[in-house]
């Protein structure tokens, strides 16, 4: 199975990269960009064939390594 993981900074955690990208977009003339939040995208190829088990495993991976839950939240999708 394939799993995709989005890791993003939690709401309220300052994202200086997102802010800089937002400024750059505004500078390029793209009007109306209220804010930008930058994150990470990971794609995992899993041997597991059970959807629930795969999801549980990837969530455990996020908790332990893929995300720093002090500042980041994550979203797992199994395909």
């Amino acid at each position: 199975m394939k799993a995709t993981v989005h890791v993003t900074l939690k709401p309220g955690v300052l994202d200086p990269q997102g802010v800089a990208i937002g400024h750059a977009l505004t500078g390029l003339g793209f009007a109306g960009v209220n804010s930008v939040r930058m994150g990470k995208f990971l794609e995992l190829d899993l041997a597991e064939t059970d959807r629930a088990k795969a999801e549980a495993a990837v969530k455990a991976m996020c908790e332990k390594l893929l995300a720093n839950t002090v500042i980041e939240s994550y979203r797992v999708e199994i395909r």
Partner: peptide, 16 residues
Amino acid sequence: VEAGLLPGALMRNASL
């Protein structure tokens, strides 16, 4: 910090 021996996190410098 990543190992959980100290609390909090260290993020990208505000100046980038």
